[in-house]
């Protein structure tokens, strides 16, 4: 990725809306990604979230379905 990707506007979603999205699409209809470090994940994460520390994201993009809505936290 280029540096300019960081400058692209990123949409944010408030947590109640994330909850609604998960209810509506079902837990397997959304990529829910925890981008923190394993230690943080261990002390509490959202149910069904996949741990992909931000530094590893680029290498693990293949694990994710691009067609699903994706929420990162």
């Amino acid at each position: 990725m280029s540096l300019f990707d960081y400058l692209k506007p990123v949409e944010t979603m408030a947590s109640p809306d994330v909850k609604r999205l998960l209810d509506e699409k079902g837990p397997d209809g959304v990529n829910l990604i925890d981008v923190r470090q394993p230690r943080e994940y261990e002390s509490g994460h959202l149910a069904g979230a996949e741990l992909i520390p931000v530094a590893e994201l680029q290498d693990r993009l293949r694990d994710l379905d691009k067609s699903k809505p994706t929420v990162a936290y």
Partner: peptide, 12 residues
Amino acid sequence: LKGAGFREVYSM
């Protein structure tokens, strides 16, 4: 993710 072609992406 946006850069990699994911269509609908949000940061919580």
